[in-house]
Write a protein that binds this DNA or RNA. Structure first.
Length: 431
RNA sequence: GUCCCCAUCGUCUAAUGGCCAGGACAACAGCCUUUCGAGCUGACAAUGCGGGUUCGAUUCCCGCUGGGGACACCA
């Protein structure tokens, strides 16, 4: 029997990191076993469901590269199916109408099921003496719709969060009442925040879309998520998604909750950015910069490629591009007060910057070696330490005390702009 | 409160009775360097506690403690 799994989010919020990991594990399991991954939207809460969240969920899954083999299917469009099953139980005397809904009395018993990650779990059903099947608004409840759909869709494995363990015995009872065969279950541990409680906005971003927007590469995010609660054995950390598919084994999923660690995510993302080709990085940069209005749609690709090459092994997130390197894209630049105070307001700086400007004006080529040569020559001529010229120049050209290697930055910014910035700094900022 | 689940460095994890409990992130130190970063090197750091079982327990069993989750006509 081929594997069929499903991811069944409810559109009552943006796609949460925890849900994304559940989706990922299902997807990995399906792909590993050459099975089918079904997407089902559980929109049976009329008050809280919102089409905008469906869009967010779809977009977020797309970002992660998790594509559904079937679906999305909407529960709100299969009401007849649930009604039919409820009627069947009523006809058999197993359920009854109450307050306009349908309820299912539960006989006290102990239910044991074998969980793929936890082993046997036993629950006493006297904890819940009845289950609501259909609400008085005509929509099915979660546990009922879930059972009817999983059976109808021939789901073989239900992989979901730990927090659903208590629902499983309820669903098992319904399978039995309906005469249906239940799937296998794997309850994966929750992702928790730094407070060890389930990941919430309180301890960091929870929406997958936010991570996308900050500039985490999908394979880095997927890689990180996969490592939360699972490890292939050996000492692999940086494992591209295609390889994770091959290695993934739900039996190796840990039982304990895993804490989300942004620093490790950052490190992994940096690794993937470093491994990305300049071509790809240029595309990613262009997309961001155009969206933020920092370059025009007719941007100079060769120029942006140089920037990609320069920043490739310095970025942890793509957002650092526009946050820390605005001086590459805007004119005039902004100057950090502290950098100006510490590095420009000193005797002789203005003269040095002015002298450098004069030398740079003479240059026929503004490639990095020529720029560096001009600066070094001035340093030698004036008997300066290299830092004495370089640091103030950095502030004059970038507005900041830290930047990528200065001479390449200058070359990229270009002769005219560099000269203009040196002139401005010498005249208005330097001592 | 009741029920369920869980427990290895600060964090993510490896080791499913047997080499000095391994790796990674972070933090720290050093090297490199025009700043930062990247890179390289180094040091520090864990089996929650108490009982068992066993020649031998991170590993198996029991208890405790601690943490989390679930207890809706939400999903």
């Amino acid at each position: 029997m081929s594997v069929r799994v499903r991811f069944a989010p409810s559109p009552t919020g943006t796609l949460h990191v925890g849900s994304a990991r559940t989706a990922l594990f299902n997807w990995l399991y399906a792909k590993h076993h050459r099975g089918t991954f079904v997407l089902r939207i559980e929109d049976t809460d009329q008050k809280r469901s919102n089409p905008a969240f469906v869009e967010d969920i779809l977009a977020s899954l797309h970002y992660l590269g998790i594509v559904a083999d079937e679906g999305p299917t909407f529960q709100s469009q299969r009401l007849a199916l649930y009604r039919q099953h409820a009627d069947q139980l009523i006809a058999q005397g197993k359920a009854k109408t109450e307050d306009g809904g349908v309820v299912f009395p539960v006989a006290p018993q102990t239910v044991t099921f074998r969980d793929l990650v936890h082993g046997d779990i036993t629950v006493d059903t006297s904890l819940f003496e009845q289950l609501v099947l259909m609400k008085s608004d005509g929509l099915p409840t979660y546990n009922f719709a879930c059972v009817v759909d999983d059976a109808a869709m021939q789901i073989t494995h239900v992989i979901r969060g730990d927090d659903h363990i208590a629902n499983t015995p309820k669903q098992l009872i319904l399978y039995q009442a309906l005469g249906l065969t239940p799937p296998a279950y794997a309850h994966i541990p929750l992702i928790v925040g730094s407070d060890r409680a389930r990941l919430s906005k309180r301890t960091g971003a929870t929406a997958v879309a936010d991570y996308r927007d900050v500039g985490y590469l999908p394979e880095a995010f997927v890689n990180y998520l996969a490592l939360l609660g699972w490890a292939p054995g050996g000492n692999r950390e940086c494992i591209p998604p295609t390889e994770i598919v091959e290695l993934f084994d739900v039996a190796r999923v840990r039982k304990a909750a895993a804490q989300f660690d942004q620093q490790k995510l950052d490190w992994l993302n940096g690794q993937y950015i470093k491994q990305a080709t300049v071509e790809r990085l240029t595309d990613l940069f262009a997309e961001r910069l155009i969206a933020k209005g920092l370059v025009s749609v007719t941007y100079d690709r060769a120029w942006l490629s140089r920037i990609a090459g320069l920043l490739r092994d310095r970025l942890k997130t793509l957002s650092q591009l526009e946050e820390e390197h605005r001086f590459l894209f805007v004119e005039p630049i902004e100057y950090e007060d502290e950098a100006v105070q510490q590095l420009l307001r000193r005797d002789g700086i203005a003269a040095n910057l002015s002298a450098l400007k004069d030398r740079l004006k003479q240059l026929g080529s503004f490639e990095t070696p020529q720029v560096e040569q001009a600066a070094r020559a001035l340093i030698a001529q004036r008997g300066l330490g290299a830092k004495d010229l370089i640091h103030p120049t950095r502030v004059a050209v970038t507005g900041r005390a830290v930047s990528p290697p200065l001479f390449e930055v200058m070359s990229i910014v270009g002769q005219a702009k560099v000269i203009g910035r040196l002139e401005y700094a010498a005249a208005h900022l330097a001592g």
